[in-house]
Amino acid sequence: MNTESARDNIHVLLVDDDPNENLILQRLFRNLTTPTISLEYVGDIAKAVECVTQSPIDIVLLDNRLVPNNDFRETAPQLRNAGFTGPIGIISSDITGQYFQKFPEYGADFRLGKDEIDAKTIAFILEEYTRNPLPDDCVEDYL
């Protein structure tokens, strides 16, 4: 994760197999003035794993249903196993399924309905999950 000083430029990774979502999110981020957001887009989880291991990603927005996987319970752990420690948000057209209640067990930090995504929400989430990052010497016991 980037340090405090880098918060003005936030790297967001969108993982979604529908390119329309990238198009829509690009438009939303374009309307945000601060911080500056760089949106990376990949269409499957394999490319997402590659991306988080090779690029400085601050936050991941992960589509719940990524073909061929069933849902985030199969994909979010792959990002964690790849060593990504930043926030992961699950985005979906419908987050009412019972299994969404268990998102913390699978390494996700929040869930978000796609119809809830607008400029204000995105700004709030980025602010909430990218400020006051934990120091590097923080151990898990503090959590």
Binding site: D18, N20, R27, N64, S93, D94, G97, Q98, K114, D115
Partner: peptide, 25 residues
């Protein structure tokens, strides 16, 4: 059944939402 309704609602909602969002844009 839950999976089926989830899938249907999810997949049907997506294009509708896209239409709305593109219209907003």
């Amino acid at each position: 059944l839950e999976q089926f309704t989830g899938i249907v609602s999810h997949d049907l909602k997506a294009p509708l939402r896209h239409v709305r969002q593109f219209a907003d844009m």
